[in-house]
């Protein structure tokens, strides 16, 4: 081993429903090298120190979106955050804020998944085409309208960052709203009116956002939910005032 071995203290928020009344911190001393992520630190704990520590992970390379947690109070992917940044003072890892803890660092995702399903996160074709008519064509400019928003990996860091979601869980939240924009802004999609009228125009939709912008700061994939929401507020406001003079819009 090229690096001399260093020891870092990791405090892990524990919650075992069968024995803990409320979450408690437990401290572990972990030997690490400069190339080790926080996730690898947790894996060391599970393999060598305490097999009862629970956390989600899968890909180790910021693609699956499973290993989000609060690291020293900030929502981060543990696979994309390095232990060396917290040496020598140590670090604290906790379950993602604003979400119910199932066990230790594992949070419940039901609310997020239900909301994600509710926006129909798939292309609803504008026009039905037969196989003979060929594929749906799109110019690079049309693709640019939604491409960054399609990078979302559903890691829910933005939900842990959003003070509005923390105060009022009926708010749809940054990630799902950015994904709604991703499909609405796709030139092949025809489901825009349906998505906006069922949710987008409501207080629970785009209007619940108070423009804090922390969601965009914590996103590990460079998605800008605050921008998606602001664009939609503008469109929703125009629609709010023009619906009475637009045929077929007045009763909505």
């Amino acid at each position: 081993m090229a690096d001399t071995e260093k020891i870092i203290e990791i405090q892990v928020l524990r919650y075992r429903p069968e024995q803990d009344k409320e979450p408690v911190l437990q401290s572990y001393k972990v030997p690490f090298t400069d190339d080790m992520s926080v996730l690898q630190g947790l894996q060391y704990i599970k393999d060598y120190l305490d097999g009862t520590v629970s956390f989600r992970w899968s890909c180790r390379m910021a693609i699956c979106g499973s290993c989000g947690m609060m690291i020293d109070g900030k929502p981060k992917l543990s696979c994309k955050t390095f232990l060396r940044e917290y040496y020598p003072q140590g670090l604290k890892v906790e379950a993602l804020a604003h979400l119910p803890i199932e066990r230790d660092l594992v949070v419940g995702v039901e609310d997020f998944v239900t909301k994600l399903e509710s926006i129909k996160p798939y292309i609803i074709p504008k026009e039905k085409r037969t196989l003979e008519q060929g594929e749906y064509l799109q110019t690079p400019q049309q693709r640019d309208m939604y491409e960054q928003f399609s990078s979302c990996i559903n890691c829910m860091l933005c939900y842990a960052a959003c003070p509005q979601y923390g105060l009022n869980p009926s708010f749809t939240g940054p990630g799902v709203l950015a994904l709604m924009h991703r499909y609405n802004a796709d030139s092949r999609d025809g489901g825009q009116a349906e998505r906006l009228n069922s949710l987008g125009h409501a207080d629970e939709g785009f209007w619940g956002c108070t423009a804090v912008g922390y969601c965009s700061e914590v996103c590990p994939k460079g998605v800008d939910p605050a921008n998606a929401i602001n664009q939609n507020k503008m469109n929703s406001a125009i629609n709010y005032f023009t619906r009475f003079v637009t045929p077929g819009e007045a009763d909505k």
Partner: peptide, 15 residues
């Protein structure tokens, strides 16, 4: 879901 009346205040805020 019920349509929000926020656009009225948001438009004045934006302007």
């Amino acid at each position: 879901m019920k349509r929000s009346n926020e656009p009225i205040f948001w438009s004045l805020f934006g302007a």
